[in-house]
Design a protein around this nucleic acid. Structure first.
Lengths: 248, 248
DNA sequence: GAGTGGTCTAGACCACTGA
DNA sequence: CAGTGGTCTAGACCACTCT
């Protein structure tokens, strides 16, 4: 009753693979055999096998790269969004390797949703910076930054593979003070799915932030699309009385 | 290039259903036709149809209850884990209906993981309270609380359908001060899957908290298993300098 | 008891990856 | 170019829900 019963074929396959992983026979990053080989090994069809793999994927034990196959998942990165740290340092503090690639950097027309989020008038312009982060060589994060152009003149011409936090400090004398962030489990689509090497509709974690500087001025926002299996968010917080009425 | 191209059969089906929902023809809570009917409607097989439905599910647009069918998803609940509020009030403040059911309340032997989390010696005992929350009639949250028995004598005999926060205050003079919480996208298994009416391996969001009282004493912890499509976590926080070294 | 979703079989073709 | 994953077909049986 406490331990789980699993009689379906797919569940048995899942457990078998799970044990191979937890026993250490399959190590993080290891590629699993092809779906055809595995389905033959477990005497089943690819569809049934796929179901087992998808359950392990949802749990974060294995992951898939679009059209490349299945791999054993590395441990999750610990991520505290309250730290005003440079991403690079957060990762290296966990003995992991990090790379950043700039996908695009341009000035765009703010969408209605962005205007609202950033408290802008209609038809405003924003700097958009799209970047991709790898940890230990694996793509885990696609980020879209939107900066207020009047606060960050000329930033698009700089080397944007380095930490934005660092550029803010050294070139503009700004540092983050406060943030509001939303965390939403959703699915990857289009550009996001492609960048993260995910199939359309794969579950991901979206962290949407609005950031204020040390003087409480709204300066930028970003949308972080994480592979759902790549992180564990950890937050330490004193609790506050909510703004809505608390009657007994 | 900006809008998504979708040529697979499954993607076309997804879009069609998506439009029916966003147009308001299918309202939250509405049950979709049977998979057989839908697959006939779209001139495809159940497997292909299912793929379309699963993508919409991952995105949180529709949801499934095990063996009952597919439904249009209601809007996500806004959830701020920093609020020391009674769950009931947080939900009603958003004009939603809430119900709480107690699944079990007993004293159990603390698992090794729990001993570590709660800084307990080996072979400690804990009060375990398992509850299920519904919003607007829909099961969205399964919670396991673990309380230190010496701090909460006799609590298991009380009416546990009401707010624990309230019981803490009125019967024990305690209120929450600080919390540490981890947020982990993972998959439902066994008891959790059953309670949430999910299939084995469905993606869920686990929020694991450790709570301290107003004097900084560790008093309890809980594991909240949320339907991934039921919430949007919203946190407002001042940013802090991380504990690990920040060299340039 | 009818209908539904859960599970599974046994194939197939295409587009892409990687050698 | 061989092999792989992505996608799809056309069925089937069982266990469960709901009326």
């Amino acid at each position: 009753m406490t331990t789980e019963q699993a009689f379906t074929h797919a569940a048995l396959i899942r457990q078998a693979i799970e044990q191979q992983i937890s026993s250490g026979l399959l190590r993080p990053g290891h590629k699993l055999p092809s779906e055809r080989d595995l389905s033959e090994l477990f005497a089943t069809t690819r569809i049934t096998l796929k179901e087992a793999l998808q359950a392990l994927e949802a749990e974060g034990k294995i992951y898939r790269e679009d059209r490349r196959g299945w791999f054993v998942a590395p441990p999750r990165l610990l991520y505290n969004p309250q730290y005003k740290s440079h991403f690079h340092q957060m990762v290296t503090a966990q003995q992991r390797q990090v790379e950043t690639a700039v996908l695009s950097a341009q000035t765009v027309l703010a969408t209605p949703a962005l205007c609202q989020e950033l408290e802008l008038p209609a038809l405003s312009r924003l700097h958009e910076i799209q970047r991709l982060r790898r940890i230990d060589g694996r793509v885990v994060l696609f980020v879209r930054h939107y900066l207020k152009p009047e606060i960050f003149p000329g930033i698009l011409a700089m080397d944007l593979t380095q930490s934005l936090t660092l550029i803010y400090e050294t070139h503009y004398g700004l540092s983050y003070g406060r943030s509001r962030f939303d965390i939403i489990p959703t699915a990857a689509r289009g550009e996001v799915a492609q960048a993260l090497m995910l199939g359309e509709g794969s579950p991901i974690l979206l962290i949407s932030r609005v950031n204020f500087d040390q003087d409480g001025r709204l300066i930028d926002c970003d949308q972080e699309y994480w592979r759902h299996d790549a992180i564990r968010i950890s937050i330490d917080s004193s609790l506050v009385t909510p703004p809505f009425p608390l009657e007994k």
